[in-house]
């Protein structure tokens, strides 16, 4: 189904919003729940590549719309990741594989976001080595923990849309 990616995006959006809300409550301590990387995993396993790419791009642009970073940086990086994941599906063959990839992708995307934002406002970029490492650690943990419910939601939606199951699901 051609519009599967859009419906999937709408289904994923509450999770993004939820992560933002959770970050809101932690705003005073500067910790952020970053899940955009995690949201890519399940769609990249089952959607066609072009659909996964569109999904990743929209996900990135949605994220960027509310944060002052150079336009397109995160979105295009997510697209690159989506292309890579959708052409290397065996990596996400089983649950441990998915978890591993989710953690790596989430940490990587979070890193890209931070670098991009420090490019946009250089003043903020100094003296944050340990904040950054803490943030990346959090992204890794959220990527692993958040994957299960997010992937469950996304799989359920894809099932309803008759997207063919991933060939190597155990």
């Amino acid at each position: 189904m051609g519009w599967a990616w859009l419906i999937l995006l709408l289904a994923t959006y509450p999770w993004l919003l939820g992560a933002d809300l959770a970050s809101d409550t932690l705003a005073s301590s500067s910790l952020v729940f970053f899940i955009s990387g995690t949201c890519l995993i399940a769609p990249c396993r089952r959607l066609k590549r072009w659909q996964a790419v569109l999904f990743a791009a929209c996900l990135g642009f949605l994220f960027e719309a509310r944060r002052p970073i150079p336009d397109g940086t995160l979105a295009l990086c997510l697209v690159a990741i989506a292309i890579f994941l959708s052409s290397n599906r065996p990596l996400m063959r089983n649950t441990p594989g998915m978890l591993r990839v989710a953690a790596i992708v989430n940490v990587g995307a979070c890193l890209i976001w931070f670098v991009a934002s420090s490019y946009a406002s250089p003043a903020a970029a100094t003296d944050l080595a340990w904040h950054l490492s803490l943030q990346l650690l959090l992204a890794g943990i959220v990527g692993t923990i958040g994957l299960l419910p997010i992937a469950l939601t996304q799989n359920a939606v894809m099932d309803r849309l008759n997207v063919p199951p991933a060939p190597d699901t155990p």
């Binding site: 960027e64 719309a65 397109g72 295009l76 690159a80």
Partner: peptide, 27 residues
């Protein structure tokens, strides 16, 4: 993707701004 990135960089900032605006309004 690389072609698109190149186009994206060369595109007038209005295009990017429009894109951003669109996603803001979407949300």
């Amino acid at each position: 993707l690389s072609v698109f990135v190149a186009l994206w960089i060369l595109a007038p900032s209005a295009v990017r701004r429009f894109n951003r605006e669109a996603f803001v309004e979407f949300q």
